[in-house]
């Protein structure tokens, strides 16, 4: 038993430091994907409520594709496709071999998927804002941009937070898929440890517990954020 715990020790003898390094890659990947995915998702939702037919169609095609493809396939397509495209581009100038960074490819792929789902969340949040809010702001002489930033967005964020929280929890778990293109995130480091120590049950259980902890911490934090955003709704 103590031998098994020794395997998890920090330092040369144990795998604690390797797992921790993997964990930090996992968390950074998720955190790096988030702003990119949120912004793109918001833009896609805006395109869908713009009332402009071509813009709506373009956004629908985007969400249909990235919500329909398996995440694993999206990752491969971005990784190998990106590699091929860059290689073709570089071969115009020189004959160096280009290798796409796995972190970047993972970030782009997960961001594409995240934004497609986020746009649906934002869209239904936009639809939850009564028309009177636009009209009222218009009557007060606010410009469209002011109305959007000062009146609509704060309410949209409140409505969208629940759905976005779910997407964040999904994103955290999906980072594990990037291990297939050899990014040294938590699950891949765990597999490396398993390969050396031949202790799959111990290490994969530990990895699962770490993911679980990440999810539970996020849930706590997001619940707090939700309470804070809803502070205006309480009975005074």
């Amino acid at each position: 038993m103590s031998e098994l715990i020794g395997l998890l020790r920090y330092g040369d003898a144990g795998w604690g430091d390797e797992l921790l390094a993997g964990l930090s890659v996992t968390v950074s990947l998720a955190l790096a994907t988030l702003p990119f995915g949120l912004l793109l998702g918001l833009l896609l939702a805006l395109a869908q409520i713009s009332g402009e037919r071509n813009l709506m169609r373009a956004a629908r095609i985007y969400t249909t594709i990235f919500r329909g493809l398996p995440e694993l396939l999206t990752i491969f397509i971005v990784y190998y496709g990106g590699q091929m495209a860059l290689q073709a581009l570089f071969s115009l100038f020189s004959d160096t071999y280009v290798e796409v960074n796995a972190f970047l490819a993972g970030m782009v792929a997960l961001g594409l998927v995240f934004s497609a789902y986020a746009s649906e969340v934002f869209l239904s949040a936009f639809q939850g804002i009564p028309k009177g809010q636009w009209e009222g702001a218009h009557a007060l002489g606010l410009s469209r941009l002011q109305t959007f930033l000062l009146v609509i967005m704060p309410q949209v964020l409140r409505l969208a937070l629940g759905g976005l929280s779910n997407l964040w929890l999904i994103l955290l778990k999906e980072t594990s898929l990037v291990s297939v293109i050899a990014l040294n995130e938590l699950l891949r480091m765990t597999s490396v440890a398993v390969g050396v120590t031949k202790q799959p049950i111990l290490f994969y259980s530990v990895a699962c517990l770490i993911y679980l902890t990440l999810s539970l911490i996020s849930e706590r934090g997001l619940a707090r954020l939700e309470n804070r955003l809803k502070r205006g709704e309480g009975v005074r």
């Binding site: 009332g51 639809q127 969208a160």
Partner: peptide, 20 residues
């Protein structure tokens, strides 16, 4: 507290596209 999906509201809530 579990995060919950926002309620879908009545369909008459699109921003007025005409106001552009």
């Amino acid at each position: 507290m579990k995060p919950s999906m926002p309620q879908r509201a009545s369909p008459s809530s699109m921003p007025p596209a005409k106001a552009g």
